[in-house]
Design a protein around this nucleic acid. Sequence first.
DNA 1: TCCGACGCAAAAATATATTTTCTCTTGCAA
DNA 2: TTGCAAGAGAAAATATATTTTTGCGTCGGA
Lengths: 238, 238
Amino acid sequence: MMHDMPHKSLTARTCDLLREAIVRARYAPGQKLRIDQIGRELSASSGAVREALSRLTAEGLVIAEPQKGFVVSPISRRDLQELTEVRIAVECRCLAESIAQGDVDWEARVVAVRHRLAAIKGSARRPDAPEVRRWHATHLEFHDALASACPNRWWGRLRSQLFTQSERYRRLSGPFDETGRDVEAEHNAIADAALARDVEAATAALTVHLSRTTEILLNSRILFVDVPPAPDSGGAAD
Amino acid sequence: MMHDMPHKSLTARTCDLLREAIVRARYAPGQKLRIDQIGRELSASSGAVREALSRLTAEGLVIAEPQKGFVVSPISRRDLQELTEVRIAVECRCLAESIAQGDVDWEARVVAVRHRLAAIKGSARRPDAPEVRRWHATHLEFHDALASACPNRWWGRLRSQLFTQSERYRRLSGPFDETGRDVEAEHNAIADAALARDVEAATAALTVHLSRTTEILLNSRILFVDVPPAPDSGGAAD
DNA sequence: TCCGACGCAAAAATATATTTTCTCTTGCAA
DNA sequence: TTGCAAGAGAAAATATATTTTTGCGTCGGA
């Protein structure tokens, strides 16, 4: 019909829309994804939805149960802990490589994005406010910038994949429960150390940043499928 | 209940078949993958092929060019080098974790698979002989066994993904050019150190093993899309 | 009252048809 | 002779129809 996006296949569009919806928790973990319903919501045919879901399957966002359809990947405390451990290793590796290989343009990117990120923080805290949305996007850009001088494309791909997964957990915590946390200071600690070419300090700061985020999420009242933080009640999950 | 033999959907079957074909280099890197032709070869409809290709896209084995179809992911010296670097890091991490966490069952698995692998080696060297095929399968099992005690599922998923990618390069070298190489000795070095719970020695041996394989592949006469090993001719590739 | 089998409805999987897009070829003009 | 353009053919993307499977509800028997 109308050329809204030049040469972007409808399937890819649907895939991006679906991923965004899942990451933003519009579809709950474990929820069944009915093909025709999604097709109606996104005004795409069942084939396109099916193909988009298939791609998301390999990204780990949805799982396909043969003859039963697609389901949003469930979440769990254990998965978050494992994911964080891997992510710390990968992000630190990318950062170290960036520090070793980065040129002045890389430094400029880091400084620029940090500035833009810092300019957003003092705003509304509703989960879907445009400010929050922009903050998330810029936050992604910030971490991308830090790792952007890592020349190894495989590290980058893994990093991006893990970031998306983490973002899913982050969005689930509703309005952020940053109780007395100074995220900007953590970001500055990473960026300053990186710009000073101090690999040890930068990776340490990054580790602290990621660990703290996960710690907060684990202590938050997200509804995990496994046992709640207080292991008192013996109710079986699932 | 009847035996819950997983009704493998036709799409999943097609996906596995396609992956196998690509890894085994039945389709050359960069080759166009025509939907209907594949559908005829595998006796599946275009929709199923399409969906399978989409999944493979996210696995990095094929790339989808909008409105132009699917293409087998190209290979290059640089990609192999980057892949190897990442793979060494991930495999070593999994191995270290396995050594730290592995119980007696893990040791038993390693010993058993090593035994089976060693029993295959003295056989035919044709690229598609059943012996070679079984060796590759068992080789995969061996490395899986080494990492099987790593409790972190994310490390495992990444490892498996990278292994598949590497396998692609390995199969491309045709009849192996193991010039005076004792692969079994390298495997034994890894397994012995692992069973002795010597993390340093085991990861070092594993690193040597993976590096040597890549070195051989880089010096082999695989047709890469980028410049050949002799950097004399300045002609741009592609 | 409880267990099991039958059947109906909904949803997924597959196949087919239609439309859109790209590419290759051919022809015309400079 | 070369370069551009228009058209024909092929292949991909999308939509629609058909088949199969599953899940649930009900009915019948023990």
